[in-house]
């Protein structure tokens, strides 16, 4: 497909998809300008953009962004590792799963934000408690999705591998794991968005860097445009992370979408 053709095909789609966002930005721009909302409390996007530009020029935007990104990635990495291992384990051994299910469901309902004071008491105000709140928020969706994914693997596939003489390890690694992969990735993407929510909370208490800190600090010093700048940056962080996770997911589950048009 030529580039021109591709643009012609995707452009209308792009416009219709961003119509809602465009309308929202327009309303946001107009509302404070014509006095529907006091512009001291709601800065229009043009002003926010300028504030972001100034933050970036001072090098602060990148600094806060990268600090938050690092926290999110560390927290997510730990919960992906722990969630997948525990999820595979509980999904595979039904008996274990049965006795742990109630506990896990309870943990999942236990808000990471409500537990934050506990983490601070136990682990102090440093990076550790921040990592743990992010870890806690994202662990449960990953663990439970992985476990469900393993439980839902079509038994006929396992049986067919067995009749071929497959070992337990082969069945686990080459049948159950790929069969459960789509659900595992759904959990990881869910976990990713929880990480971004949790990092804000973590940075609003006892931090001196990160986008969450930027938001709360700007609010305290009444720098309203920068506050909105921080909020927008957090949205960008969330969307970007989700986009990358989605890319990784499709690279692993491409067989689902593949359309072959001959060699």
């Amino acid at each position: 497909m030529t580039l021109r053709k591709r643009i012609l095909i995707t452009a209308p789609d792009f416009f219709s998809r961003s119509a809602g966002l465009a309308a929202f930005l327009l309303l946001w721009e107009i509302a404070p300008r014509i006095g529907w909302v006091r512009s001291t409390y709601l800065s229009p996007p043009s002003v926010v953009l300028r504030a972001l530009y100034l933050l970036a020029a001072r090098g602060e935007l990148a600094k806060h962004f990268l600090v938050s990104l690092e926290r999110v990635l560390i927290g997510l990495a730990v919960s992906v590792a722990a969630g997948c291992v525990l999820g595979l384990f509980t999904g595979y051994f039904r008996k274990v799963e049965k006795s742990l299910d109630l506990l896990f469901q309870a943990f999942r309902q236990m808000s990471a934000f409500a537990l934050f004071p506990v983490f601070i008491l136990l682990f102090g105000l440093g990076e550790l408690s921040k990592t743990i709140i992010i870890f806690w928020a994202s662990l449960w969706p990953i663990l439970l999705n992985t476990s469900t994914g393993v439980k839902n693997v079509d038994t006929i596939l396992v049986r067919s591998a067995k009749t071929m003489g497959a070992s337990r390890a082969y069945i686990f690694l080459r049948v159950i794991l790929p069969a459960a992969a789509p659900e595992i990735f759904t959990g990881i993407r869910l976990g990713g968005s929880y990480c971004v929510m949790a990092v804000v909370a973590a940075e609003m208490i006892g931090a001196n860097s990160g986008l969450g800190y930027l938001v709360i600090y700007s609010e305290e010093t009444f720098n309203v445009p920068e506050m909105y700048g921080g909020i927008v940056s957090l949205a960008v962080l969330g969307i970007g992370l989700n986009y990358i996770l989605k890319k990784i997911e499709t690279s692993f589950t491409s067989w689902k979408h593949e359309i072959i048009s001959g060699e």
Partner: peptide, 8 residues
């Protein structure tokens, strides 16, 4: 039910 591995 064929039992083919859909990801292969």
């Amino acid at each position: 039910g064929y039992a083919l591995f859909p990801w292969r």
